[in-house]
Amino acid sequence: MTSTPIKEVREDGRKTSIQHISTSRRIKDRVVQGLVYLAFALAVVPLVSVLWLVVSNGLERFDLEFLTHSMNGIGARDAHGGAYHAIIGTLEQVLLASLISVPIGLFTAIYLVEYGNNGRLSRAISFFVDVMTGVPSVVAGLFILAFWILFLGFEYSGWAGALALSILMMPTVVRSAEEMLRLVPNDLREASYALGVPKWRTILKVVLPTAFTGIVTGVMLAVARVAGETAPLLMTVFFTNSINNDPFNGPQMGLPLFVFDQAARPNDTAIDRAWTGALTLILIVMLLNLVARLIAWWRAPARGR
């Protein structure tokens, strides 16, 4: 290495006082700042565009008839008809999916946090929960088709759709519940053990109540996510134009499926129904999201303790 005498360089630097940074550095800094702001704007444009179009196009048919009538006997070119059968179907399917996935997801989270001790089984479960998060929704639908309908021989039903949705919900529920359970301070557990309370009662009476609102938030977000899923319904609940209130017998409809079906038809009347269905779906999903955020927000001050 050649050694540069410190003195010389310093003498040079001393001639000038506080220098401005070079123009090229300044320009680079500004350009990047501009790009970052532009990126954010670019990301917001589709959101605004989607919401605007859904609201403006969807409001046209967003009426009592739409919410209280099915598509039974309505041709694609007729202007009437509604999504009542699809709304009922979606609500039932999502409720059933929650009933399946919340207990399994919650108990899995309890296992990971309280019983797993980071052993081999617990690490395997944890890894596959991550992997399960990445299972495409259409694959979940195909699995239920292969297992429930083709292998076991059951018919298409809302329940089959709920099974497919529950596969998509489970990893989300596990992850959010696990996160919340880990937030519960160990002091609380130890205080309870010190009183002689057995572990399972500690979990039931101390840990779960402490984490409760957080878990509810996670479940609501998971519900909001699967409520908009179309692909797994396509091959499990199949399709119907009429009202079927029984999720265990016969094909049902789902709101996302309704939108998909109507959007794929070339008639304006069908497209109108698709937009209104999309509006209804977004309202349901946003409502669920909002409730989840409100619960989380309401809980937030307690976390500061």
């Binding site: 589709p46 959101l47 565009s49 989607v50 919401l51 179009l53 859904v54 909001a224 996510r225 409520a227 908009g228 899923e229 179309t230 692909a231 996302p256 939108v259 998909f260 959007a263 698709a274 937009w275 999309a278 779906l281 977004i282 999903v285 946003m286 999201n289």
Partner: peptide, 10 residues
Amino acid sequence: AVPSVVYGLW
């Protein structure tokens, strides 16, 4: 949070 079918329609 926007369902994929809505993106498809859009």
